[in-house]
Design a protein around this nucleic acid. Structure first.
Lengths: 125, 125
DNA sequence: TCCTCATCTGCGTGGATCTTCAGATAACGT
DNA sequence: ACGTTATCTGAAGATCCACGCAGATGAGGA
């Protein structure tokens, strides 16, 4: 493990440093920050991003449909969906030999919308 | 480049496959998906996540303040901020020998809020 | 001008992650 | 029960990226 930082530099004993101490206490700890980062990292892949936006458009798709929609081998899609489902980003529903996937909740849809808005490729609705 | 997939599997010529074709056209292309994924990936790191939430709390912090708040060497913070600034996730302002960073816009703040809400660590406001 | 402090940059290494292949499992129709 | 189709799983190889050090740059004060 890394030793505690000396806390030198421009930080002194002024009221300013007390403000920093307050911020330090409110910053997410390793556990929470890890969970938050894991969610973002899950969305941070071109293939997964395409799949998620396909689901955002279509509402519900099975593996072979996703494969056709984003031009990715079915085995890869399946593996990707496992990751997304493990982190509750998507839900699944079995119907016969097909497994249909959909975005898990409104939070995920909101993340996708806000991100697209930020990058400027906003969709005219 | 990768050859086009055979499009076999469960996809036929039914109206269903036409729906899939429509979805395929609306899925972000490699360029846009790359930009979207890059933004998410940028947020998908424990260190960066902590820094961003620190900025969300504090509003504006200089490199040495961030270093103290998240317990990370200043050089590492500096390097991290360069990445975040390159993708317009944060803005910076120079004042004397200090450089103050802040979250770039409301979109970023919204992403952080929604993500925190999804992981269940919601803040009481 | 010289010195100090805050910040920035380049490089090498280690670890984590994505991709693909090949086979296993599950469900349906006959 | 058998064969076919859709989906899932495990492992190996290649790739990418973060981390930390060590030195460079820029700004301010004496």
């Amino acid at each position: 493990m890394s030793q505690v930082l000396p806390l030198d530099g421009c930080v002194g004993a002024d009221p300013e440093s007390q403000r920093i101490a307050l911020v330090r206490d409110r910053v997410p700890d390793d556990g929470e920050a890890g969970a938050l980062a894991a969610l973002f990292r899950l969305l941070g892949d071109v293939r997964r991003t395409k799949i998620l936006y396909a689901l955002l458009e279509a509402g519900e798709l099975c593996v072979c449909d996703i494969s056709a929609a984003v031009q990715v081998p079915e085995a890869s899609v399946s593996q990707t969906m496992r990751l997304l489902r493990a982190s509750a980003v998507v839900d699944n529903r079995r119907e016969g030999r097909r497994v249909y996937y959909r975005l898990a909740d409104a939070h995920v849809r909101m993340l996708l919308d806000v991100c697209r808005a930020h990058t400027g490729h906003e969709v005219s609705r």
